[in-house]
Computed example of a mutant assay.
Amino acid sequence: MDSFSVFGNPIKHSKSAEIYALFAHEIGISKKYNLKLAVQDNFNYLLHNFFNLGGLGANITSPFKENAYFLCNQLTERAEKARSVNTIKKLKNGTLLGDNTDGIGFISDLKRINWLDNNNQITSHEEEPITNILLIGAGGAAKGILPILLTTITTCHINIVNRTFSRAQELTSYYQEIGYKNISCLPLYKLRYDTNKYSLIINATTSNIHNTIPKIPYFLITPDTKCYDLFYTKQDTLFITWCKKNGSNYCSDGLGMLVGQAAHSFFLWHNTFPTIDPVINHLRSVFYM
């Protein structure tokens, strides 16, 4: 019986089992980790059956993170705020604890690549009292990173744009209602009139899967603009290629975030934090998309 699994659709491309195996080897743990393909009609059953048969922990990937949120008996504060779950731990009393490690994995990667300093401010050559962040997307990936962005980078203002504006409005309203005033949204087409200078632009959409890029104006990109794509491929993603073409000297894909969030999941399950950099380097050298 598998002790740990990741549930998603699609799932064949997932690197979660390989990452877990590398972490487990470092720590000296011998537990089985497998990939579980699910659909909306059977996800709830498969997840509960997994834990009923002895499963200890699960990762949840697209498109089931919001489903998993409602299946947990307890939630961490970051999962509660994100309203989505990517990590579940079965507690000793049999109840399920839901967490969301996407945000902390993202912040960990910003620090790893030196985009975030010791004061949790985005590194810059210019002195700005407020850091403007443009978040493209309002789905599960955006929801996972928003809580920690708002609470960690305290001098930031986050502007959300999304192809469906109503989803950006809904997300913005939720965070404003729970006390965060440094967040706003605007329709995607209005970015052409936007005069904000963005220190960090985050692509949290699935545009790469569809071989497209978000329709944002090229003039938002400057040499100092940091551009982060939550997606990752062996070569530069389409979004990163576009950002570099338009002048950004600071671009990163989401592989570091993937390994970072997995490390925090591993810590939740085993109370031991694994080493991240060797796993990132290994995946860079061998993985394919």
Rank of each mutant, 00 (worst) to 15 (best):
S166N: 09
P274R: 02
T123C: 10
I88R: 04
L200P: 09
N100E: 08
V85E: 07
P63H: 10
K81W: 13
N271D: 15
F239Q: 05
H210W: 12
Y193P: 05
E126F: 14
P187I: 10
L96D: 11
H13A: 03
L22W: 01
P147D: 01
V39M: 10
I178W: 04
I216R: 09
S62N: 13
F43A: 06
Y250P: 06
V286M: 05
D99H: 06
L47V: 09
G28A: 01
A141M: 01
Y193G: 09
W242T: 03
I145V: 07
F64D: 04
V161W: 01
K12T: 06
A17L: 01
A138I: 02
L37M: 11
V259N: 04
G105Y: 04
A17R: 00
T237I: 11
L116P: 03
M257Y: 10
G98C: 07
F266T: 05
I122C: 02
C227Y: 11
M1S: 07
D102A: 08
L46Q: 15
L134R: 02
G256A: 11
N67E: 14
G57H: 02
D99N: 11
L135G: 00
H157R: 02
I221L: 13
G94N: 13
L191D: 12
Y228I: 13
N132H: 09
T241C: 12
G247Y: 12
G260V: 07
W242E: 08
L283Y: 03
